[in-house]
Design a protein around this nucleic acid. Structure first.
Lengths: 339, 339
DNA sequence: CTGAAAGCGCTTACAG
DNA sequence: CTGAAAGCGCTTACAG
C-alpha cells in the first residue's frame, strides 16, 4: 500500500482533542454530541491532513463489514451483469460495497461456506441458476446455521420458500406467450429450453404446458445445452421431426438460433412461424425482424433483492422469506403476428 | 451477522496453546515453525470448532486487505463483464477478492479517491473507456501520490505511458481490417465510430485513416452515440450521403446496425458491401450472415492486467509502466468476401 | 460535551 | 518450538 496515511490519532493530536472526539465528530450520527466548535475544528484538521477513515478498522470494531457478497455463475451473461448493475445502484445508496464471488464448481461448493464466513460479509446475494443438492445445502447453512442475511436473485429453490427470492412469475409468463401464439392461430408450438433443469426454466415450462393442455395441443419440447453452437445442432435435429409454426425460446439467443435456421430453410417470419424469446435482450434488437420477447425487469430484480437484503442487514429481526415477484411485460415486435 | 463465531482465542484455549501458536499453525508459511504434533492438534480443534479466520482482523494487522477494486463504467457491456471474468480467474488463484466500484459521473470523480483510500484496497484495476481530465487526475493521484498499484484494463491515457495498461494494438487492428477491405476491391469504405473520443476508438481510427491514406482513398467517418436506437438514426443519415461498399464498426453492434439498414434497402451482403466489427461478440454469431470481426482476447486482457497488478502488489519495488499489448486476430465470416 | 480505556480478532517482533 | 505483549485503527460504554 502506501507510506503513511493519517490515522484518527493524527487528527486528534493536531486538533487538540481525543481520538474519541474525532470519531464522534466525523460520524454523522454522533456528530451532534460534540460541540459545534470542536466539530468544525476536527473536520478542518481532517481535511487538511487528508484523513480517510480505515474501513477495515471500523469494520472490526463494529462487527459490520458493510460488504455484500454476490455469488454468480457466469458474470458474462448479459442478464447477470445487468442484475449486478441493479444491485450496485442500491448498494451505493446504502453504502455497501459489492464483492463478486464466482460460484465454484458444484463439487467445491463446500469451501464456499468458509470463504463467505472468513470474509465477514454482512449479507449474501445468490444468483446461480442451477440449484444442485450441494448448493441448496450451502444456502441453508448460510441462512439457517449462520443466520447471514441471504436473498436469491432471479433464481429459487424448487418447492421451498424458506429463503427469500426475487424473480418474476415465470410460470405466468410462459403461459401468456403460449396463449398469445395460440390466439394467433398457431398449433404446432414448441418450447426450446435448457437441458439443465433450472428451477426457473421449469416454471416457464409449466406455464407453457398448462396453456397447451388447455387448448388441447400437444407440447413439443426441445432441450438444448444453451451453448451457442450446440444450440444450432440440437435445434436442427429437433426440427427434422417437428414442423413448427410457433416457437418459444427460454432465452432470446435460443429463439434467435431457431429463427435463423428456419429462415435459412425458406420459412417466412412471422408469416409461417412466430417467435418469442425471454429476457428482451439487446440480441433481439439486432435480428431481422426484431424479436418479440418477454421483458424481464432484470436490473430491478437485482435492485429489489439488494433492497430487501439491506433491510435484513440493518435490522436483525427482519428475516424475509418467500418469493417476491416483480411484474414482467411482453414486447411485441416483428417475429409475431401481434405486434 | 451471526451469534458467536469462534476466534483464535477459542481455538487456543481448547488446544491448550497460545493464540500466537494457533496463528502460526494455521498460516501455511509459518506452520513449519511449530512442532508437528501441536500443529495437528491445533488444526483438529480449529476444524471441530468451525474456526474461520476473520479476514478483517487479519487485514488490519497485516495492513493488507487482499482486495482489489475494479472500477468500471458499465458492467452490463458484454466485453466489460468478460474482462471481469478474466480478472476473477486470476484473483481466485492469488487469493484476492474483487470489489466492483462503478465509476461515478465525471464531476463526482473526486470522491472516488476518498472511497478507494478508505477501502484500503491493495490495488486498483481501471476499465473506464472515456478518460476525462478529472479521471486522468484521479489516476495520477492513485498512482503517483498514493502509490497504490494500478493497471488500466483495455483503456489508456492518450500520449501518456506513465501508468501501466493492458490492451491490444488497436491501431494495427484498424489498419489491418481496412487493408483487408481494400484487398477485396472495396473503395468506399467507412468507419463507424463512437461520438465520444475514447482513446481506444481514436487508435482504431488512426489505423483506418493510415490504410485509407496509403491507398489514396478518402476516409469516411460516421460518429454515432453508441446507443442502439440512435445508432440507427445516425447511420441512416450518414448513408444518405455515402454510398458504401465496405464498413468497419468500432463495435460489433454498430456494424450490425448498419448491416441491417443496408440489407433492408436491398443491398446484398457480402456481394455489394462487406462488414467488419470489433470485439467478436456473441452478437456477431446471431446475425445472418454472421459477422466478420476483430477478435479481441477480452478475458485474457483482464487476466493479464490482474496478473501484473498482483506482481505489483506482492512486491513494492515493482512498478510497471507502459503499454502491454496482447495479440488480436481477425475472424472471417459471412459478411466479408474473405472468409 | 469530552476523555481514558477496553475491545474488535488478528499478526509478529522479542525473549526464552 | 512457544508465549507474553504490543500493535493494527477504529468504536463505544463508562465516568466525569
Amino acid at each position: 500500500m502506501s507510506d503513511h496515511r493519517p490515522t484518527i490519532y493524527d487528527v486528534a493530536k493536531r486538533a487538540g482533542v481525543s481520538n474519541a472526539t474525532v470519531s464522534r465528530a466525523l460520524n454523522p450520527k454522533l456528530s451532534e454530541l460534540v460541540k459545534p466548535g470542536t466539530r468544525k475544528k476536527v473536520m478542518k484538521v481532517a481535511k487538511e491532513l487528508g484523513y480517510k477513515a480505515n474501513t477495515l478498522a471500523k469494520a472490526l470494531a463494529t462487527n459490520k463489514s458493510t460488504q455484500v457478497a454476490v455469488i454468480c455463475s457466469d458474470l458474462a451473461r448479459g442478464s447477470v451483469a445487468e442484475m449486478v448493475k441493479g444491485i450496485l445502484t442500491v448498494a451505493q445508496a446504502y453504502k455497501y460495497s459489492i464483492v463478486i464471488v464466482p460460484s465454484p464448481q458444484d463439487d467445491k461448493t463446500e469451501n464456499l461456506v468458509a470463504d463467505i464466513l472468513s470474509m465477514r460479509v454482512d449479507g449474501v446475494l445468490y444468483m446461480v441458476d442451477e440449484i444442485t443438492e450441494k448448493r441448496e445445502k450451502f444456502l441453508k447453512e448460510i441462512n439457517d446455521t449462520y443466520n447471514i442475511p441471504l436473498v436469491l436473485v432471479n433464481t429459487c429453490i424448487q418447492n421451498d420458500e424458506s429463503i427469500c427470492s426475487v424473480q418474476i412469475d415465470y410460470e405466468a409468463a410462459g403461459y401468456e406467450v403460449t396463449k398469445e401464439l395460440i390466439k394467433e392461430g398457431r398449433k404446432k408450438i414448441a418450447l426450446l429450453t435448457t437441458l439443465k433443469r433450472y428451477p426457473v426454466s421449469i416454471l416457464k415450462e409449466n406455464g407453457y404446458i398448462k396453456a397447451m393442455d388447455e387448448a388441447n395441443l400437444t407440447p413439443r419440447i426441445c432441450y438444448t445445452s444453451g451453448n451457442l453452437t450446440s444450440n444450432y445442432d440440437d435445434i436442427t435435429a429437433f426440427l427434422k421431426t417437428n414442423d413448427l409454426d410457433g416457437v418459444i425460446g427460454v432465452r432470446d439467443s435460443i429463439a434467435i438460433a431457431c429463427m435463423n435456421i428456419m429462415k435459412n430453410s425458406g420459412k417466412d417470419v412471422p408469416k409461417d412461424v412466430s417467435f418469442y424469446g425471454f429476457q428482451n435482450t439487446r440480441y433481439g434488437l439486432l435480428t431481422n425482424p426484431q424479436l418479440s420477447s418477454v421483458d424481464i425487469p432484470v436490473s430491478e430484480i437485482g435492485a429489489k433483492a439488494m433492497k430487501i437484503l439491506t433491510s435484513m442487514m440493518e435490522d436483525e429481526k427482519i428475516n424475509k422469506k418467500g418469493r417476491v415477484l416483480l411484474k414482467h411485460g411482453i414486447i411485441y415486435r416483428g417475429t409475431t403476428l401481434k405486434r
